[in-house]
Amino acid sequence: MTFIKFIGKTIGVTGYVLQYACLTHCTFEYVGDFVMCSGPSMEPTLESNNILFTEHITPRLQRLKRGDIIIAKSPVNPKQNICKRIIGLPGDKVRGHFPKRSQIVPHGHVWLEGDNSSNSADSRGYGPVPQGLIRSRVVCRVWPLNKMCSLTEY
């Protein structure tokens, strides 16, 4: 009798855990999540080990603007995320780095650059990035607490 009760309770708890796991997945995937950034490419705006709040709604509706800071999958390694600023939208004329001539950003792509232009692997190295790789837009910094600020304006 107690055994059956135990089984029932286990199933109940598992169900609750599953429900909340799914709810968390949907929130983080479709609404917003927290990202810890590392590396020097966005200095002085962002420093290593800052925690950022990012939202997924604007990229999904494709309302991204020039100057937005975004999180995208790296084009050279899909398991790695990059945090850069949008410099050019489709149709814009931008200046490349290695072939040092201006080029036009093709349809469905964006031009990303880090704020620390001397120490950043970005579109100047690997060219325009497909919009399909963009995951979210950075809204504000939440950690460290004394540097908490909004990051949506250029």
């Binding site: 599953l18 429900q19 796991a21 799914c22 709810l23 997945h25 949907c26 995937e29 479709y30």
Partner: peptide, 13 residues
């Protein structure tokens, strides 16, 4: 409220 996220998670993963 609880069913929809479970469905979406299933389709996503």
């Amino acid at each position: 409220l609880f069913g929809v996220p479970i469905g979406i998670t299933f389709l996503d993963t």
